[in-house]
Each structure stands twice: as structure tokens, then as C-alpha cells.
Design a protein around this nucleic acid. Sequence first.
DNA 1: TACCTGTGAATAACAACGTTATGGGAGGAC
DNA 2: GTCCTCCCATAACGTTGTTATTCACAGGTA
Lengths: 236, 236
Amino acid sequence: MGVVSETTRQSTVRDRLLAAAVEKLEASGPEALQARPLAADIGASTMAVYTHFGGMPQLLDEVTREGFARFDAELARVPRSDDTIADLLALGIAYRQFALDNPQLYRLMFGLTTPGTRRAKERDLTTEGSPTSVSEGISAFNHLVDAVTRAAESGRIQAEDPVAVAGQIWSAAHGYVLLEITGVFGHEGHGLVRTLQPLIINLLVGLGDTREGIEASLATVFDAGGAARRRSPERR
Amino acid sequence: MGVVSETTRQSTVRDRLLAAAVEKLEASGPEALQARPLAADIGASTMAVYTHFGGMPQLLDEVTREGFARFDAELARVPRSDDTIADLLALGIAYRQFALDNPQLYRLMFGLTTPGTRRAKERDLTTEGSPTSVSEGISAFNHLVDAVTRAAESGRIQAEDPVAVAGQIWSAAHGYVLLEITGVFGHEGHGLVRTLQPLIINLLVGLGDTREGIEASLATVFDAGGAARRRSPERR
DNA sequence: TACCTGTGAATAACAACGTTATGGGAGGAC
DNA sequence: GTCCTCCCATAACGTTGTTATTCACAGGTA
């Protein structure tokens, strides 16, 4: 389980098909995920989709699962430090970065997109995140729950119910990111400094931390590497 | 402009087609919006879609526009009182209620769903909210900006840039509502009291109001009518 | 009344999609 | 060698969005 063709030595037809689907999704949108063009991309016939996946819906489920695996891996790369609020902010930045780097994948992951596969078997909204991808989604969410728990334990914020608090932060980040993806915040950067940063700061203030403390933690996040990503515990 | 067949006396083919599309979207999902079944529903031939709309994409644009018009009308029904924070909370409740009552329409409005129309002409993400529906969307958003502006003028919160603050609240509500629609918060009601209410309260605390004041305002909102909707400015 | 014009709708056809049935060919088991 | 079992290519079927063609009918003019 994990990133495409991580275990297999040579690319199998199935792996190449899945990789081509992920790439094509981001390049041309969900409606471009069609059986015939996809198979043609890897030099195979349409039947490959059915022998390896069973059909387009199952292939899309695998794309979703792959997306959650990548998302999980990306969030796992965010380091942990003594500054629990800085860690939380870094997690939020990584969250946004992944969504901005993979907008189509992000929307597909959260069941917000219904690709061409029109003969889909009446997907239910509540079960849309296909069962196979649920575990990966929970794993990604747990990074946030852990960060909230540690922030609460450090005394910076109050979180009797860390899962509920993580749900609040998740809602805020999810909503912001989707609005930014759809372009409502205009050109690059304005949304981040005018909306996401104040939103998270205000939320953390409401959760008990001080504005000064948050801004100090935010400064350390941006100090460490310019691109707002601290790759390893020690400074590079 | 507005709700379907608001001006025309007798239902035209176009109006019936649009109304059937909106109804069918909510009943059977975006992939059910197909030219032939839709035309058959109103007893017409497929050509009606093309003579009146030009094609399925344009019909979907009209559905989106209609959705924003209804959303705007629903938000406009939220009354204004002396308690500006209560008004803001009531607006949030109405926002959530509309999304929960019309989940498919809500997702289509925000470009988060890509219905069957597979031959779509390469929609761009940034321009996905079709131009015709932009004005209605802005109108709906302005209700929130107004409420924030009034709350700032009343001194309850600090909002130097009301549009930016409205964007923060919008992000939080949008993200929560989408997560609730996809079912991540479990069964009815838990998400609201465990996530949305604390989220908005914490955010408003971060914006300068006191927790006690917010909870008092929230109580007045729920007092006035049980269903959390105050129909007229004066208390009933 | 007779005639022209234009708009709207039905019929039929076309290309492309997801899917399924059929058949062939490569690689191991005995 | 012979058989068995997967994969995969080919071809077909039903359905989709779309377009071309044709027809019907309402309204104005002589």
C-alpha cells in the first residue's frame, strides 16, 4: 500500500494504468478519465481496465486511495518540534500546499467530483468516500488529531475533545482550500495572508492561545526554509 | 432573474426543463442529469435542450445560477436585529440548512461536481463558476459581508477588512458543511454541536467578542422559533 | 381565402463512451 | 508434448451528447 509502483520492480500494466490515471486527472480534469484514452496512453486496450480493476468506478476508487496515501505521506513529512502550535501551523501549510498542488485529486478524494463514469451504480453520498479509501483518509486525519492533542498537552490550547477540535480546524482548512482552488480569493497569495492565516490564528485564539504566541510560532515556521516546509527536525 | 418560472404566467418548455433538472439533480445525483431522460420527463424530445439552452453544459450553468438565486433568497430571509452576533449566527444556521437541504445543488454551485456531460469543453478550474452565476454568488456572499460589517460597527468584533473576515467565516462554514454532507461527522446533530458551533464561537472569540456574549446571542437565536429561524426583526 | 415566413419541435443519424463477449497467445505443471 | 490458466486485443452492444433534416403551425400580407 502506498505510492504507485512502490513495491513492484517493473511497472505492471495495472501500475502504469493507475499512474496514468492520476497524472491525467490532474492534467485534464476528472472528465478526461476515460477507459479508452487511458488504455491508449499506456499502449494497451480497453480490456486492461476490466481485467485489472473491474471497471472505471473501481479504477477511480483506486485513484482516490492513491490520493489519500500521497496526502498521508505528505502530512507525515511535517516534522514535530517543541513548539506544538508551530507544528500545527506547519501541518496546515502542508495541507494547503498539497491541495494546491493536486486540486483535482483533492476534490476527487473528498468525493466532491463525479467523473464521467456515468453508469456509476448510484453512489450514496454518505458512503461516497469508497470503503477502500476510508482507512487512508483516517490516517491522514489522525495527523491533525495528534497535533491537536500535543498542542493541548503543551497547554497552548484547550481541547477537551481533541477529535472535535481537529474537526473544527479541518473544516476551516478544507473550506478555505476549496474556495482558493475554485479561485474566489483572486491571485496568488492574497487568500493565504488575508484569509487562511487570520482564520487559523483567530481560531487558535478562540481555543486559548495568545495572539502573540501564535505569531511567534508562525514566524518560526516560515523561518525554517523559506518555502514554509521544515524537512527535518534540525535546520537545514 | 430568480426562482424558476417566477415571471412567466404559464410554464414554458424551458422553465419545465430547468425545474425538472433541479429536481432530478437533488433526487438522483449529478450523473442523472442527462439530455434524453430530462426531455422525456417533461414529455419533450431531446432537441428541446438545444433549442432552449444550446446544450447540456449551458443547461447545467442555468441550474447553477438557479441554485445561487435560491441560496441568495434563503439567506435574504434571515432577519436583522439589534444583536449583530445573533444575526451572524442565524445566517450561519441558514447557510448550513440550505446546504443540508440541497446537498447536490450546493456542490454543483461551487463547481465541486462534474456531471455526466463528458464532452464538456475543457472547463477551467478558475472560471468554473460560470460567468452567468457569478453575480448571484456575489449577492449571496454579500449577505455575509453585510452581517460582518454590522457586527464590526456594533463593536462586538474587530474587522478592519470586513470582506476578509467574511472570507474566513465563509471558509469555516463551507468546509464544515461539505464535510457534514459527505458524512464524516456521523449521525445527525453531532457535527453541529460538536464542531460547527464551537468552530464559529472560537472564531468569533478570536475576532474579539466574548464567549459569554456569543453564547447569549446564540441562545436568542434558538429561542426565537425552535427551528432556529427568526422570521421577523421583532422577537415573537 | 391564399401565401409566405419563421420559429419550435420531432425524427433520425453520427461519433464516442462504458461495458461485455469472444478468441488467441504466452508461460508454467504434469 | 499437452493442458490449463491468465492477460490482452478485437469486435460488438447499448446509451450518451450532439447535429442535420424535416415537418407543423402561428402570424402577417395581399
